[in-house]
């Protein structure tokens, strides 16, 4: 039996009984038990983990751990996460009442994806992919309007879209959604998707 780790939490009762609580220093990891031979790419498992993840967030904010990290017991989890625990605790204590929201927006001038066959080596191809993504941009007025919502980080996803992560107080989620509706009215020509709340994913580092 292995545990697919979902996140790091301040308190044990933030985790149980929705998920198994694995002690990790003075934090707790949430884990979903699965058979050793069950592929992590299994669709039903993926949806089950996503559902538990959402329920955990309703309890309290946690540090999200990317899907795919699986351990056999708390001792293994603690050994592999030990170097992160102090930082995660600081992040969790500072953001106990915060969540993340995400705004994904289409680039104003989508960049064509580089064709692998045009490159002799993988490194050159990866550089070209990175360059295409970094060249993507959005209407500066839209970017400014989104940035004004609050604490934010913009990232380039690919040549066709950018993403802005917003750090939002739980109490302000509805207000941010309303600002999203206002953005739709003000920038009806800009396709975007505002979603959340999410656990701490971007603002962990």
């Amino acid at each position: 039996m292995k545990s697919v780790v979902i996140g790091a939490h301040l308190r044990r009762d933030d985790v149980e009984p929705l998920a198994a609580a694995l002690r990790c220093g003075d934090l707790w990891l949430s884990g979903v038990d699965v058979a050793d031979d069950q592929p992590l790419g299994d669709r039903e498992l993926l949806l089950r983990v996503a559902n538990i993840r959402a329920q955990l967030l309703e309890r309290a904010t946690f540090v999200a751990i990317r899907y795919g990290f699986a351990v056999h017991g708390a001792a293994e989890a603690e050994a592999k996460c030990a170097e992160h625990v102090a930082r995660w605790r600081r992040v969790l204590e500072a953001n106990r009442d915060n969540v993340e929201m995400t705004l994904k927006v289409a680039a104003s001038e989508p960049r064509p994806r580089p064709d692998r066959r045009d490159f002799a080596g993988g490194a050159d191809y990866l550089r070209a992919l990175h360059g295409a993504a970094q060249a993507a941009d959005v209407d500066p007025r839209f970017r400014e309007a989104v940035s004004s919502i609050g604490t934010h980080r913009w990232t380039h996803r690919d040549g066709r879209s950018l993403e802005c992560a917003l750090l939002v107080a739980r109490a302000d989620v509805a207000q941010v959604r309303e600002k999203g509706e206002q953005l739709k009215r003000d920038f009806h020509e800009v396709p975007f998707l505002l979603s959340g709340p999410w656990p701490l994913e971007v603002f962990v580092d």
Partner: peptide, 15 residues
């Protein structure tokens, strides 16, 4: 968000 976000524990993200 599940697949593309969150902390990556080095060396453990891929089986």
């Amino acid at each position: 968000h599940l697949l593309d976000r969150g902390v990556v524990i080095a060396g453990e993200a891929v089986i």
